[in-house]
Design a protein around this nucleic acid. Structure first.
Lengths: 192, 192
DNA sequence: CCCTATCTTGAATGTACATTCAACAAAGGA
DNA sequence: TCCTTTGTTGAATGTACATTCAAGATAGGG
């Protein structure tokens, strides 16, 4: 027998970074072998194909993001305050992040839409789960009476994720921190 | 002498559609020759390279979009009402458009960001011009006293385009017309 | 200590791509 | 009419890619 030598999480996080930086199509197997320090054969043995690597990286991304989200909101007494923190983190990622400037899921679904229904379906499922995670927190805020505008948690969650998608895209056109912070504040104001 | 036989606008609009459907990287010269009914040599004689074709298509896209925008707002007596119409058009494009589901500029800048500074710069410039066009209309609405919330036209325009970017991205995850229309209404409410 | 099952290595393979170019066609001036 | 200039054609070129695979390495069981 012989056991695999590499750390799957490390490999997937490196791959993830490549896909976020260069997109799905322009991330070559060569870039992936360099970033992961694995040879083509090992990557193919572990993940089957470039698409397999991408889907595994996507899953790792979702896991990591979900951990971060849960940690932030888990013991929050004021949901709106925590949401504000969350938006600030995103703004910061947009300003000084290299890979984290983008969301792997939205960047990829935009690239792949109409070309690969399988990848699209996985990405859509993950993004819908993200929306639901927001809805859950916003429901708590409604129950709390932090939010009293009569709009449903689902409705607010949709607006929230739409705002985040827009904010990240807008940041590609304008990196001014003041503008981005103002947008984040306006988003928060629009749901409270 | 001999004169060129093709219609540049037709060629660029066909190319545009290919780039919107498949993205920059996955639009091969073969797809472009098929869509434009031009042979590689003619395309290269006219535009120099694939990048040249893309940049020319981008310019045509901006021209077409600007014509549409201007036509809609030119003789508008109620800016907010016209803005509502504009958002409805976008929602409709998201629902039943094939190529028009996406904005060529945002889709491309998201794909190409970090890989091609030249293309990025052109796209950023065009998207900034788009934002300014909004600011101009919103300034009219402020002068009109249609909008009296004290926020500047620039600020409102930023929020507006961010919302549109987000709406288009959100539509890739959820095609439900009710959800999209509601988001459009909430966006409008957030700026009035 | 050796054997075998599994992992690693990286050169080889075939394909798809962007780009070039030499041959051909047309059009207008001389 | 013919000649020159410009447009058109599409096969040929070299490159970069995803994927494969045979040879080598390693670890644990017998």
């Amino acid at each position: 027998m012989r056991t695999a030598e590499f750390d799957t999480e490390f490999v997937l996080r490196q791959a993830m970074a490549m896909f976020m930086l260069h997109g799905y199509a322009k991330t070559s197997m060569q870039k992936l072998t360099q970033a992961t320090h694995l040879h083509p054969g090992s990557l193919y043995a572990a993940f089957g194909s470039k698409k397999g690597i991408f889907l595994a990286a996507t899953e790792q991304y979702q896991t990591d993001r979900n951990t971060q989200f849960t940690a932030l909101f888990e013991h929050s007494s004021c949901i709106l305050e925590t949401l504000k923190q969350y938006l600030n983190i995103i703004v910061q990622e947009c300003i000084d992040g290299e890979a984290t400037k983008v969301c792997l899921l939205t960047k990829s679904i935009s690239e792949v839409e109409g070309n690969d229904p399988q990848i699209c379906h996985v990405l859509r499922t993950n993004l819908t789960a993200y929306e639901h995670a927001f809805a859950q927190q916003l429901q708590k805020a409604i129950d709390n009476k932090e939010i009293t505008n009569g709009r449903s948690a689902i409705e607010l969650a949709r607006f929230c994720v739409m705002g985040i998608y827009g904010l990240r895209t807008y940041a590609l056109t304008n990196q001014d921190p003041d503008a981005l912070n103002q947008l984040a504040n306006e988003l928060l104001a629009a749901i409270s």
